[in-house]
Design a protein around this nucleic acid. Structure first.
Lengths: 242, 242
DNA sequence: CGACTAATTGACTGTGTTCAATGAGTGTGG
DNA sequence: CCACACTCATTGAACACAGTCAATTAGTCG
């Protein structure tokens, strides 16, 4: 049973999951998915603000976000805290914990959410017989590395407004892949969380939102964001517009 | 043949490699290492300043650093460049390329170096029969994620001197694991590379070195660094001293 | 030795932080 | 239903840290 999350176990089912094309089952045959489904036995509900896992706790399972949204964050002994990632539907939580066999961060639900538990040892076991499952795991881990590199780029070489633009574009892309509007969405995180993730203070995040709005690139209504010119936003952060 | 590196192919041999306890063979039986050795056929020499791989090029193999030192860096269309990582003996290059199947960064030798080529498809294949090899790969990838998270922490919430202290401590730990002095070492990277990695300008890196030296925590002699008080350095970056 | 590249240091500038006040939104209880 | 408390967001003014520009020194390689 993870953290202090509300446990409401229920049989999970990859076959009927509408997000299996985003998650571990990618590239598997129906038969293989059935097999994987036997591994992924349970899904949990985690209510807004509750912890799915705590830094330092033992690692046993990965968690696939079935629906909802999470942040991961690290709290250092001197009180400094930092958000290290945001996770949405179909994304895999806990990859950082594999090597130390301890969770390295707290994982908190930003909205009422559900996760599917993936016991890691068992995943490696059945992976022996399903090559494409292993491949998919490797790709997911690689993607996590690429994503983190992107954040490093952002933190290391972008100014406040650029960081925020990059963050919004990243959300936009991920939402689009899930069938949501890439230009009109609701932020789940507070200004403080966003700031922490982007290496900025919440006031700077707020000011940057206002600046981007003044420039006509976005509209901000507290948590409701509309992107007006994705190409210009991309140019702003040093990507080609295509 | 990777990048424009000097190709001097030679049979590689994990069995006799003094760094196998840091690298992919960790936890494998002699028999399994023999098997792995058949996969890792060649090692390449890459001279200082030469590229092992270029961003955008096709991904076929991981490269294990046999000896020497590398940096990975990304160059954006607008000219911004950033160093995303430093790699030393026993570490695995190219994990970011698995998912996109293209290299996402340039990999450059900081000193004359050697790498062992690990064809990735084949690695996944023989991993089917050697569970501990797959586990080790997962641990290495997970460790890369943890390492990157550390850099994100650093970039997101530390000031210049703290960043530099964290960088030096990280190097120190990795060198110690390789049997080198953790308190007395030679930097392979320039101030500019270090700055790029830490999200600072080279002048700021230089000033931070001087500050830490004035405080008596380190001695700096261009590339030769001596750490005088690892505990205090750790406290400085919000780690407990133990 | 001369031509490089790399590193240090100083003076000034600018971006983001800090501190503070205000406003908007939400939930609770009288 | 409204008052109150609370959290979250916005905005302003002063300040600090790192960036920029520039000059100098140290080190390296042909």
């Amino acid at each position: 049973m993870p953290g202090n999350s509300t446990v409401l176990q229920q049989k999970s089912d990859c076959m009927t999951c509408s997000f299996r094309e985003l998650c571990l089952p990618v590239g598997l045959t129906d038969e293989e998915i059935e097999y994987l489904g036997n591994l992924i036995n349970y899904k949990f509900k985690v209510r807004r603000g509750e912890y799915l896992s705590h830094a330092g706790s033992d690692f046993k399972s990965l968690y696939a976000v079935k629906n909802g949204s999470f942040k991961t964050c690290v709290l250092k002994v001197d009180g400094r805290q930092q958000v290290t990632g945001f996770y949405m539907t179909g994304e895999l939580l806990g990859l950082d914990a594999i090597s130390p066999e301890k969770h390295t961060c707290d994982t908190v639900a930003l909205v009422d959410s559900e996760v599917c538990e993936v016991p890691f040892k068992k995943l490696e076991e059945i992976g022996q017989n399903i090559p494409s499952l292993m491949s998919q795991l490797h790709k997911i881990m690689s993607r996590e590395i690429v994503q983190d590199r992107g954040v490093m780029m952002l933190l290391g070489s972008m100014r406040a407004e650029e960081r925020l633009a990059a963050f919004l574009l990243n959300l936009s892309t991920r939402l689009a892949r899930r069938g949501y509007s890439p230009t009109d969405f609701i932020l789940r995180a507070t200004r403080e969380d966003i700031g922490s993730y982007l290496g900025l203070k919440l006031e700077t995040v707020s000011r940057s939102f206002s600046k981007l709005q003044e420039e006509g690139l976005i509209t901000v209504n507290i948590k409701h964001i509309t992107l007006h010119d994705v190409d210009k936003l991309n140019l702003r952060i040093g990507n080609s517009a295509d």
